[in-house]
């Protein structure tokens, strides 16, 4: 799906596998050879049990981690170094704590050579769009978790990337803030559809946001064990969509698959810690 021959995929992982060398000299196969394709403008969510390597796969797409085998293509071209077409939203705080909200957003334009006055003006407009106009001069420690995520989102989107990579970005937030952030993300995404690869462990969040949900198996040697289209209408409201019967059918179908993997991962975790 999404692998049209006419337009190259925004991101394509071709037979990508990831192994880590352990301190005792052995190797740990985190991800078995995997193919994953995200079409331009497509919103793909990856779900899987904790520790299955879904974030590692995302880091390969970003160019932050080199795959052990296989290759990454960005718009048909092999990826060398960091993925400059992408914006990456981290799970943890990634804002520079010594810069105000507006400086954090404006500095993202410096690598593009935008002069500072123009960068500040555009940063102000972006803070406005994420609803933080009055918080422009605040430092990150003076912002709430959700506000920090909004700044991080503005920091990424101001560079106008064609691909968004998101690593459980709303994981640390409370349930209500997650919904608000999810709706904000969908609003912004609807304005100019970028390709999105969204990693989460929350299946409901994945279905509510994405066009397609990819299920990964428990590690080691994790692989994709399911690929489900989400045929729900847009625009969506994250909170309301969960009450639709169609949502429940999709959830049921994916959860049937995911549940087994989660249990497997849980059993392994218990065994390892014992």
């Amino acid at each position: 799906m999404g692998d049209n021959t006419s337009t190259p995929a925004a991101v394509a992982l071709r037979a990508v596998s990831i192994s880590f060398r352990l301190t005792d000299g052995g190797t740990y196969d985190a991800v078995a050879p995997t193919d994953l394709v995200v079409a331009p403008g497509e919103f793909v969510a990856i779900v899987g049990p904790t520790g299955c390597g879904k974030s590692t796969l995302l880091n390969v797409a970003a160019g932050l981690v080199l795959p052990s085998t296989g290759r990454t293509e960005v718009f048909g071209k092999p990826l060398a170094g960091l993925n400059g077409d992408s914006g990456y939203l981290f799970q943890q705080d990634a804002l520079m704590p010594w810069k105000t909200a507006i400086d954090n957003v404006a500095v993202a334009l410096e690598p593009k050579g935008v002069p500072r006055p123009a960068a500040l003006e555009r940063a102000r407009a972006w803070l406005d769009r994420v609803g933080l106009r009055v918080f422009a001069e605040r430092y990150p420690h003076m912002l709430s978790g959700g506000q920090k995520k909004r700044v991080a989102l503005a920091q990424i989107l101001i560079r106008d990337p064609t691909i968004l990579l998101m690593d459980e970005p709303f994981g640390p937030l409370d349930a209500q803030t997650r919904q608000i952030m999810g709706n904000l993300l969908l609003d912004l995404w609807a304005q100019d559809r970028k390709a999105v690869l969204f990693v989460t462990h929350d299946l409901e969040e994945a279905i509510a946001l994405a066009d397609r949900v990819v299920v990964m198996s428990a590690g080691p040697a994790a692989r994709i064990v399911g690929d489900y289209p989400v045929a729900l209408e847009r625009p969506r409201d994250i909170a309301e969509i969960r009450t639709e019967p169609r949502f429940h059918e999709i959830h049921k179908a994916i959860w049937a698959k995911l549940r087994g993997e989660v249990q497997k991962a849980y059993a392994q975790g218990e065994g390892r810690s014992a």
Partner: peptide, 25 residues
Amino acid sequence: SPTILANARMLGMNERQLLRHVYWP
């Protein structure tokens, strides 16, 4: 923080910009 560093790199900063905006502060 490795996350701040990775984020700055993903924003496209070169070594000089990393020095100025991340390492130096």
